[in-house]
Amino acid sequence: MRINIFFLMLLAAATIGCKEERKLPILGERDWVKKSVDGKEVVDTIYNAIPAFSFVNQEGDTVSEKIVEGKIYVADFFFTTCPTICPIMKRQMIKVYNEYKGYPDVMILSHSIDPEHDTPQVLKKFASDLGVEGNQWQFLTGQKDEIYEIGQKNYLSTAKEDKTADGGFIHSGAFILVDKEKHVRGMYDGTTEEGTKKLIDDMKLLLEEYKK
């Protein structure tokens, strides 16, 4: 009997020790540079990172990448008159928002892909109708080309004008998780319950990384 218990404990310890910590990957295209360190040639990986940007938020303030300095954040693309997936995405994003409301190092950036219509005033009204106050959730508008480019190139997300689509624009329903180093660490289906839940869980995991 005693041996049995001992054996069980050993097994339990082994299982716990075995459990590898899950770490989120870094997504996007990579580049490599060669450089020499102490006369030896080494290869350095350059990961996809969100570049500097300049947009205008729902308060009419110009915001740059500095607003997310030292924060992890979730980005998405939408437009206020969108009849298709945006309402679903916003319903799901509200869950993310409520889960991390008041966290000083968590933000949400929702980019409008219809900046001509979605002026700061329109976005402000949209945010307050959605029940969002304060500046943790930023609704951004700006130069159309810049929004499309950062969406396609860095957030790995489709966002463009298409007159044949319902509402006039096509964009993916993705929620994009970005870490404090501006690397994309996850893409989630913002139109589903499961996708959103996974994002909420992964954000916890990502925040853990910075606690060590």
Binding site: P87, I88, K90, R91, S128, D129, L130, G131
Partner: peptide, 15 residues
């Protein structure tokens, strides 16, 4: 249902 929701209750002050 995207806007008016499956339960017909709409969405906050938006829809």
């Amino acid at each position: 249902a995207n806007c008016h929701q499956a339960d017909g209750k709409g969405m906050s002050n938006l829809y």
